[in-house]
């Protein structure tokens, strides 16, 4: 049996309400909330970035896995906000958590699906017998240009998953990926904010890739939507994942637990992985979970998980996602948010 042996998530405490962003740019907050189904989003502290978020998420994953960090043979972090252009984020993470130095690390980048890329490669290396454990992380401090539609959703957070063969919490039964050259969203070298193609990011990009990866995954597994207790999709906003899931045949009830974007925003590479984390916090042994990520550019990774008895042992060994999402929040006004996100030009 190969799958997740430990999982952990981390969300910053800071939040900004969608109303304040709308007010700043003269937009109608009710129309934004109704249209995008977003109410507030996480904001990284001034001393937080993809590396610090990854470290805390991975620390929680290690607490649940209860393994010697030295046994981890690979660490991959997927993000589009790696603090360094040249220097893998995981070089810092391994030293913080006592992993390695006999370990393979890499930074992945594929818009919002870099996290599931990291998870897929970590899983595949364990499956190939190359190593006992591998760690895959999706984390971001997402960028959205001031006044752009992305500013309502781009948030911060991440999740970490240790893959292994023993004491598996959620077995990975099937995977499937679907990728094409679809220029719906990109960021050129040295540019601070990403660009996107407006409504083109919907049907030809998000919905097409999620649907094709999802239908192929169902075919490959021989399962139907009704066979799953939970379904998680990439959450660029609150509305898209509900529509994509419905089109594949999933119900609102199946998607409810992993649908956290209305209060978290879009944590980009940490989006669907963090939805999965929220599901694992409540899933029962035997439950099946359907998950499809999406990354602009564009591609989707699909996974079918089956939860094991081990979940009951590890669940309470680290903070749960919903507790982090709902409690101890510090709300910022737009000025503080602009300062935190370095949107204000300062003298050197």
């Amino acid at each position: 049996m190969i799958g997740i042996v430990g999982y952990g998530s981390y969300l910053p405490r800071y939040r900004i309400k969608v109303d304040l962003i709308a007010k700043q740019w003269g937009a109608d907050p009710e129309a934004i909330k109704r249209g995008l189904m977003l109410y507030e989003k996480t904001v990284p502290g001034q001393d937080e970035d993809t590396i610090t978020i990854s470290v805390e998420a991975a620390r929680y994953a290690l607490q649940r896995a209860r393994i010697d960090p030295q046994k981890i043979g690979a660490v991959y972090i997927g993000s589009e906000s790696h603090p360094y252009a040249v220097k893998p984020s995981a070089t810092i993470l391994i030293d913080a958590l006592g992993i390695g130095p006999h370990v393979h690390v890499a930074s992945y980048e594929f818009a919002c699906k870099a996290g599931t890329e990291a998870m897929y490669v970590a899983y595949s290396l364990v499956k190939a017998g190359e190593m006992e454990y591998a760690l895959g992380i999706g984390a971001d401090t997402s960028q959205g240009a001031p006044g752009d539609a992305l500013e309502y959703s781009a948030s911060a957070g991440g999740s970490a998953f240790i893959m292994g063969k023993e004491k598996v919490v959620a077995e990975i039964l099937f995977t499937h990926s679907y990728t094409s050259d679809t220029p719906d969203f990109w960021r050129r070298e040295h540019e601070f904010y990403p660009r996107h193609a407006g409504r083109f990011t919907g049907e030809p990009a998000y919905f097409k890739h999620i649907h094709n990866a999802g239908t192929s995954l169902l075919e490959k597994s021989g399962m139907q939507p009704k066979d799953f207790q939970f379904a998680v999709f990439h959450m660029p906003n609150g509305k898209f994942p509900q529509e994509a899931g419905k089109k594949l045949g999933f119900t609102k009830e199946q998607m409810e637990v992993g649908w956290i974007s209305p209060w978290m925003g879009n944590t980009y590479s940490g989006s669907s992985p963090t939805g999965l984390s929220a599901v694992l916090d409540v899933a029962k042994p035997g439950d099946k979970i359907f998950m499809v990520s999406f990354g602009s550019g564009a591609g989707s990774d699909g996974f079918v998980y089956q939860v094991t008895d081990e979940i009951e042992i590890v669940r309470d060994l680290a903070p749960k996602l919903r507790d982090m999402l709902d409690n101890d929040k510090i709300y910022l006004d737009y000025g503080e948010y602009a300062k935190f996100r370095k949107k204000i030009i300062l003298n050197e």
């Binding site: 590396i51 610090t52 805390e56 050197e348």
Partner: peptide
């Protein structure tokens, strides 16, 4: 104690991490 960024070595230098 949590893992956080302590300071930056200017605009193009190292990010320095540690405990807060």
């Amino acid at each position: 104690l949590v893992f956080r960024k302590i300071q930056d070595e200017g605009k193009s230098g190292l990010h320095c991490y540690g405990y807060k």
